[in-house]
């Protein structure tokens, strides 16, 4: 937008307001002006976008160890229990488990609407129970790294929440049932040890004995005993 389409009197002020440095009477006058001038309003929004770009340009840098712990402590959040070594870690209901729990709290179930890989899930009522039938710790080399939950109803489902695992990349989630059969539930992405997903079980929940995560080379990364 060329300058002659905006009010020249406010040209400098618009730039400074977009940068967040205009104060006092100049700021008040400019605010009052943009409320009645569409061109200047548009100019301000456009310049603000360019200003935001500078902030977004800043690098992502991992904060020091303990940052999360201190922050969650101040807020009063019971953080994911990977750092707690209690016999049964207290996990925050997050990711897929929260989706299932709240979705069913709304009376919404999840089911397959089509076999097409691009089909969207059809929402149906009351097909998954709201509370898990069974929950177990997911362990990796003896250390707890997540939680697996099984949900009943007409569309049994499994949720898996993973935190501070060693894995990064695509993993396969499998279950082993009481007859020794292995069922693949799907492949999912784990990002630097964190991931959460929900998948239909395809078998009765009480038939499930083990849930496990498998790496692309077939190695069992983590497992949970469910029965």
């Amino acid at each position: 937008m060329s300058d002659d389409t905006i009010c020249e009197k406010f040209a400098d002020n618009l730039a400074e307001m977009a940068l967040g440095i205009l104060t006092g009477r100049e700021r008040m006058a400019t605010l009052a002006h943009v409320e009645s001038c569409a061109l200047c309003t548009h100019e301000l929004e456009s310049l603000s976008w360019a200003t935001d770009a500078m902030l977004h340009m800043a690098p992502q840098v991992e904060p020091p160890l303990g940052f999360e712990v201190r922050l969650f402590s101040r807020i009063g959040v019971d953080e994911l229990g990977a750092r707690r070594r209690a016999s049964r870690p207290r996990w925050i209901l997050a990711g897929a488990a929260a989706v299932v729990a709240l979705a069913t709290g709304l009376g919404i179930g999840l089911s397959v609407g089509s076999s097409s890989p691009n089909a969207k899930v059809e929402a149906q009522a009351h097909s998954t129970t709201s509370k898990p039938m069974l929950t177990a710790d997911l362990t990796e080399n003896g250390s707890p790294v997540g939680v697996v939950s099984l949900y009943g109803g007409s569309t049994p489902a499994l949720t898996m929440d993973l935190a501070e695992s060693s894995v990064h990349g695509i993993v396969t989630c499998e279950i082993v049932t009481d007859n020794g059969a292995t069922h693949k539930l799907g492949s999912f992405k784990v990002t630097h040890g964190y991931g959460a997903w929900v998948a239909p079980l395809g078998v009765p929940p009480d038939a499930v004995r083990t849930a496990q995560l498998i790496s692309p080379d077939g190695t069992t990364i983590a497992s949970a005993t469910l029965g």
């Binding site: 990711g95 897929a96 929260a98 989706v99 709240l102 979705a103 709290g105 709304l106 919404i108 999840l110 397959v112 609407g113 089509s114 076999s115 097409s116 890989p117 691009n118 089909a119 969207k120 899930v121 929402a123 489902a157 539930l185 799907g186 492949s187 999912f188 992405k189 959460a196 997903w197 929900v198 998948a199 239909p200």
Partner: peptide, 24 residues
């Protein structure tokens, strides 16, 4: 709950399984 409902509605089907959107 409404926000979660919208998110649930966006869950897509891949390879015959339900997968929560990568972006959460």
């Amino acid at each position: 709950r409404a926000a979660i409902f919208r998110h649930v509605s966006d869950v897509s089907l891949r390879m015959g399984q339900i997968h929560v959107a990568d972006s959460g």
